[in-house]
Design a binder for these strands. Structure first.
Ligand SMILES: [Mn+2]
Ligand SMILES: [Mn+2]
Ligand SMILES: [Zn+2]
Ligand SMILES: [Zn+2]
Lengths: 139, 139
DNA sequence: AAGCTTAATGATAATGATTGTCAAGTGCAG
DNA sequence: CTGCACTTGACAATCATTATCATTAAGCTT
């Protein structure tokens, strides 16, 4: 009989609540630094290191989704009720949320077919939006 | 009448040949630094910055696959002819290449439906492989 | 083959996200 | 209310990647 492990050492602090609250309102992927800036813009003083630690912890427990962008920076998003993906303009960063029921089932099947469990997936589409895709010169 | 653009500015150098040759022999994902070390171990002197630039260029032209690992480091592998995605064990990094014809068409359709052009996509599945998914304790 | 133009290289400094350190602060069980 | 383990935050340290820029050398052109 081990003690209720889920409770050991987890304390509710002003900082953690602030980060979680920010994630709730910004329902998009954000980097640690962006979250930190956002909190500061609201005069919510939270140390940068603490934001890093909090997001790390939330990631470990699966409460947030993480994506490592092509430039190596990690971005986090609250694991929302409605799972969705993004279509992003590589130039202006315009973002469209997209659903993908068939991709969901495909991903799940691929994982189980290969003996994988507890699978998650990252599906992102990058392109040039209508506005940005006009006068292209492929150098 | 512009000159044959496909040739402009692309020079065949000892360094580029060496990097490409290394990628050919090491048919696994390797980081830039690992490639650089490998070349040095063979007394192939190539500047680290050059290895970075070469891999970047090969990535831009689609000649190598790139994966950004969870720690943010990018790893490269000579691109096999066929486009594919990866199913990766989040613990031991075991990797399975997967095909996804239906995802390809879905991604293309989503992009064009939203007015996006020149679209690419990222599809990665993370999970626990059969070996690693055995004795799990979810902390 | 020699000269030229300019991409390419490499030694090095700079960048910037992330992590480590540790003294001071605080949630909360008892 | 107290005590202590968990947290925090200011700051230093890492370390992969990028920027500089003087020097080298492909690949044309005579
Ligand atoms: Mn999905
Ligand atoms: Mn694909
Ligand atoms: Zn755009
Ligand atoms: Zn595994």
């Amino acid at each position: 009989m081990k003690p209720p492990a889920a409770q050991v050492g987890v304390r509710s602090t002003r900082q953690r609540i602030a980060v979680l609250d920010a994630l709730t309102r910004l329902d998009d992927f954000r980097s640690t630094q962006e979250l930190h800036d956002f909190l500061r813009s609201e005069s919510q003083e939270v140390g940068l290191a603490t934001v890093y630690r909090t997001l790390q912890a939330l990631s470990d427990t699966g409460d947030v989704d993480v994506i490592v962008r092509a430039d190596g920076e990690s971005v986090y998003r609250l694991c929302s009720r409605h799972h969705h993906h993004h279509l992003v303009c590589r130039r202006c960063r315009a973002t469209v949320e997209v659903q993908a029921p068939e991709v969901e089932t495909w991903a799940e099947k691929v994982a189980t077919d290969n003996g994988f469990t507890d699978a998650h997936h990252v599906v992102e589409i990058w392109g040039l939006c209508a506005d940005c895709g006009l006068g292209e010169d492929h150098s």
